[in-house]
Design a protein around this nucleic acid. Structure first.
Length: 716
DNA sequence: TGCTGCTCAGTTTTT
DNA sequence: CTGAGCAGCA
């Protein structure tokens, strides 16, 4: 038992919940479709893992079970938790995979059925795909400045709906005047798809869609997978898109043992193609489905749950109505903080965390700051830095999307397989070596014209008619670098040393330094490269640093986000509301609860680039996002907003978020914060260990600094 | 070819 | 106020 304040508010540590009747029902269910509606904090993960364990216990072969998640992290965690229940031996046979990884695996095994030459294909990430579209756009020469990502969004949505280029064009014609973007997409979609196939490449959507297409075309292939995976479990089902539904539907058609777990109240990804109707209409998609609702919340104190339920109370037309039932005590009241501006808001957060750490017995990892947009992180970052509080930021640009990392990876791929055209194109003129747009198109044209690979032409640049001497020299330079690395591999060197040699040879360090405006960014970016070296070194130690192992790994890395930051580091978490799903913290700050941030201005005003999503309402989605944020808090919740905020260089007055406005005032305490607090003062008065009250239950106004101690922070 | 300066836009993001 | 992308010049 821990005393959290002068009012002797006591928090029982969360007891591992013995399964309640609903949970037990979900765990014990064996055959036929099952929908588990799992409210926030209702013990979803434990139900899923126990269910898998139970199946194995009842004699289902582990290799017949397939669990699908969205992120590698979730897959890893699930696998680990099942392993703890059933032992490593069974766990090894179990398949826990992301949708995309699964798709990759299937396509990799079926290259013959796909009619590919050889067994290798490339995976294009967002940036690669954008590059293709940008290039196609140049070819078409529209004279207009199209937003590439808006086009990609449309291509993606067409693919996931299994619309062919003709379907799209037909729809575009039928609903004429739908705008330039539908029109240009109709032009580019077929070209984009053709370009990918020509390069023997798949984008992320293809990894799902092409599996479905293959299975539809080749019953014999489908049957193999149906026979293999007789029990299928899908996590975060509310995030699935149409293609993923089709994949699942085909896979379980025969045995019908499909269990999906999700929460329609936490559907926040419609903007990237998730279709909440998948979970709403599950019973129609899978007739005879059993439905189990998990409504007992084991995470949050009831004062927090009251706010969460109030947020959803205004949500119109919920299909699967659930409410969160508290199992914990009342707890401290959530607080609404009104700060003068974003810096004051950030300082307040910093001060409260600082107190919680010094006097409240909390660890940094118990605290999180949630915001709508990554931009908001900056003020909080400096506030925490100033107070020397360790933090980690989730989101922002991912490690493997960083340019310097991608460049070096492309060289590594090229050294293993010079016919990897995408990688070649990426680095053919990086670092700059005189092969510009003109030279590249000459080389490229020669390759297509003489039915040679791009690499074959680069290897013998003199055969290209009219290629400038500089470009020819550049080709030889590239050849020398890649050849050198290839030979190192042949001599038996493993990935770590080869990567270092490559970086050396091409002068990566010099380029990274030169391309960075400040010493700090240079340091950070070179640090990323060092991180990549370290990653290769780790693989080398495991004996997986060369040959096919390495090639497979490099390909798979395209599907893999940051492997860098250590799980379980003792740091405060800074993340977007989207990035926080599935996580929980004792102390949570939700900041920037203002119109224009939440709901975000982009949901308030429509744009030509926006892709209207069917059957969804973005305002409702913003509300659910708020709900997700609120339900992360276990013990104490702060809801913060500002009166004015510096936006695009101007101070702008701010209006309270409609979602915050809707919460009945009796559910929280409110206070105004005009200047950062003076923690020293607090400490002098309070002292001792029982002062957690300061953060948990401070009397309104008590901590508001009025002594003018506010020194504006310098912004770098 | 490659750099500089201008213009424009400015969510969320996993794979 | 920033950063990305492009046009125009060296």
């Amino acid at each position: 038992m821990r005393v959290y304040g002068t009012r002797a508010l006591t928090y029982e540590p969360r007891v591992a919940p013995t399964p309640n009747p609903a949970q037990r029902e979900a765990v014990e269910h064996e055959h036929g479709p099952l929908l588990v509606l799992a409210g926030a904090g209702s013990g979803k993960t434990s139900v899923v893992t126990q269910r898998i364990a139970r199946l194995i216990e009842r004699g289902v072969a582990a290799r017949a079970i397939l669990a699908m998640t969205f992120t590698n992290k979730a897959a890893g965690e699930m696998h680990e938790r099942v392993a703890r229940l059933v032992g490593a031996k069974h766990a090894r046979d179990l398949t826990v995979s992301t949708f995309h990884r699964f798709g990759l695996e299937v396509l990799g095994h079926e290259t013959r059925a796909l009619g590919f030459r050889g067994t290798s294909f490339a995976i294009f990430d967002q940036a690669d795909a954008a590059g293709v579209v940008r290039e196609l756009l140049r070819d078409v020469r529209t004279g207009k400045n199209y937003d590439v990502s808006a086009i990609l969004e449309r291509i993606s949505s067409a693919k996931n709906a299994f619309m062919s280029a003709e379907d799209w064009a037909a729809r575009e014609r039928a609903s004429q005047g739908r705008g330039d973007y539908d029109e240009i997409t109709a032009v580019l979609y077929p070209r984009y798809q053709a370009a990918l196939r020509a390069m023997q490449a798949f984008d992320f959507d293809d990894l799902i869609c092409e599996v479905v297409n293959l299975w539809k075309r080749r019953e014999d292939v489908l049957v193999r997978y149906q026979e293999r995976y007789r029990f299928v479990i899908v996590d975060e089902y509310q995030d699935t898109n149409h293609a993923q539904l089709e994949l699942v539907r085909l896979l379980v058609q025969r045995h019908k043992n499909v269990c999906v777990v999700g929460d329609d109240d936490q559907a926040i990804y419609a903007w990237r193609g998730a279709d909440v109707r998948n979970i709403l209409d599950f019973e129609e998609h899978f007739p005879g489905a059993k439905v189990v609702k998990l409504e007992q919340n084991y995470r949050s104190v009831s004062a927090v749950l009251d706010v969460a339920n109030a947020v959803l109370a205004k949500q119109p037309g919920r299909r699967h109505k659930k409410s969160l039932l508290a199992t914990r005590e009342q707890g401290p009241r959530p607080e609404v903080i009104v700060a003068t501006d974003a810096d004051v808001e950030a300082s307040f957060v910093g001060d409260q965390i600082s107190k919680a750490l010094e006097e409240g017995g909390l660890r940094p990892r118990d605290c999180a700051v949630l915001y709508r947009s990554n931009l908001q992180a900056q003020a909080v970052e400096s506030a925490l830095k100033e107070r020397q509080i360790p933090y980690r930021m989730i989101g922002g640009q991912q490690f493997f999307e960083r340019k310097e990392v991608k460049d070096l990876m492309a060289y590594m791929r090229l050294a293993l397989d010079p016919n990897d055209e995408m990688s070649l194109r990426r680095v053919i003129n990086y670092p700059a070596r005189g092969i510009g747009e003109v030279a590249l198109s000459k080389i490229s044209a020669h390759a297509t014209g003489h039915d040679k690979t791009l690499w074959a032409v680069v290897s013998r640049p003199h055969i290209v008619h009219g290629l400038p001497a500089a470009a020819m020299e550049g080709c030889r330079e590239l050849l020398r670098i890649v050849e050198g690395a290839r030979q190192r591999f042949e001599r038996g060197e493993s990935s770590g040393p080869v990567a270092r040699a490559l970086a050396d040879e091409m002068g990566l360090k010099a380029d990274v330094m030169a391309a960075s405006t400040t010493g700090q960014t240079a340091q950070r970016r070179w640090g990323n490269v060092e991180g990549l070296f370290a990653m290769f070194a780790r693989r080398d130690e495991q004996g997986k640093g060369r040959g096919k192992d390495l090639a497979d790994y490099l390909r798979w890395l395209t599907l893999r986000q940051d492997e860098q930051d250590e799980e379980g580091e003792d740091k405060v978490t800074l993340t977007t509301m989207h990035g926080t799903k599935g996580l929980e913290y004792k102390l949570v700050f939700v900041i920037g609860l203002e119109e224009g941030l939440l709901p975000h201005s982009r949901t308030l005003t429509e744009r030509a680039t926006d892709l209207p999503a069917e059957g969804t309402n973005s305002m409702d989605e913003e509300r659910r996002l708020f709900y997700v944020a609120v339900t992360r808090a276990k013990d104490k919740l702060y809801l913060c907003r500002t009166r004015a905020r510096n936006m695009r260089g101007k101070m702008v007055p701010r209006v309270i978020s409609r979602f915050l406005q809707e919460i009945p005032a009796e559910l929280y305490d409110e206070r105004e914060v005009t200047a950062p607090e003076a923690p020293q003062l607090e400490k002098a008065v309070a002292g001792g260990s029982a002062v957690l009250a300061a953060i948990m239950n401070a009397a309104p106004g008590a901590a508001t600094g009025t002594d003018g101690a506010f020194i504006p922070r310098r912004r770098k």
